[in-house]
Amino acid sequence: MSKKYLLRFYVSGDGPNSLRARENLREILEEHLNGSHTIEEIDVLSDPRRALADRILVTPTLLKLKPGPELRIVGNLSERDLVLNALGLRGKA
């Protein structure tokens, strides 16, 4: 794990999808990244301008800023295989 992950995570308050996504993401990060990442969580309800800047349409949305290419993963991240695939973590654990 030479490359560091830079993630930005948009949620909306404590909505059911956001709660679920937070939980799913926590598990994935623990299991697969083991601390080699930086993550910023933004609540669109309290900071809509940030969301506008990133064109966040649906919540939750996870932005993978590094490593490139940039990618957005929308939804509550419950489809774990898709998330791992998208983050390039498939079969690494």
Partner: peptide
């Protein structure tokens, strides 16, 4: 560049 992984809503 979007991947859908689970349900979402329009709140954002």
């Amino acid at each position: 560049d979007s991947v859908k992984a689970g349900s979402f809503d329009l709140t954002g």
